[in-house]
Design a protein around this nucleic acid. Structure first.
Length: 112
DNA sequence: ATAATGACGTCGG
DNA sequence: TCCGACGCCATTA
C-alpha cells in the first residue's frame, strides 16, 4: 500500500538547496561565482548557506564553478578542480606559485 | 520554541 | 601571508 507520507529515510532536498543547485548548473563553463555571489543573486540566505548546500548536495553539479571570494579552489580538491579550469579555459592567475581563479575575469554575474 | 552547525565574508592585527 | 573574532541565516536536533 501507498503511504500517505513520503518515507523519512529518503532525504528530501530542501527548497533553498534546489535553488542553489539550479543556479550552479547555469554557470557557464569558464566562469565562476563565489558563495556570496550565489546568495546575493538568489536574494536569500548567505555564503554559509550556499556552502552547506554544496557540501551536502553539490556533487552532481559543476561544484568547481562555485568558489570562495579569494579565488582559491577548495582545499583538498585542487587536483579535481584545476583540470576542469584548464579544460574550460577559466582565467587563472598564479600567486606565489599557487594557481587561483582570476575573479576579475572569471566572475559570472548571471547574465547568459 | 531555542541552540547548534557550517564548501563563507570581512575586518583587524 | 597567516590567524582569530564576529556576522551571517537555512537547516537540523
Amino acid at each position: 500500500m501507498r503511504r500517505m507520507t513520503e518515507p523519512e529515510d529518503v532525504p528530501a532536498i530542501p527548497p533553498y538547496a534546489e535553488a542553489v543547485l539550479e543556479l550552479a548548473e547555469r554557470i557557464p563553463p569558464g566562469k565562476v561565482m563565489t558563495y556570496g555571489d550565489v546568495a546575493e543573486y538568489l536574494g536569500r540566505g548567505g555564503p554559509r548557506q550556499v556552502g552547506r548546500v554544496m557540501a551536502l548536495y553539490g556533487a552532481p553539479v559543476p561544484w568547481w564553478r562555485v568558489i570562495r571570494a579569494d579565488g582559491r579552489p577548495l582545499p583538498g580538491h585542487e587536483h579535481r578542480a584545476l583540470p576542469e579550469y584548464r579544460a574550460e579555459g577559466t582565467p587563472l592567475r598564479t600567486v606565489a606559485g599557487e594557481p587561483r581563479v582570476d575573479l576579475r575575469a572569471a566572475r559570472w554575474d548571471g547574465t547568459p
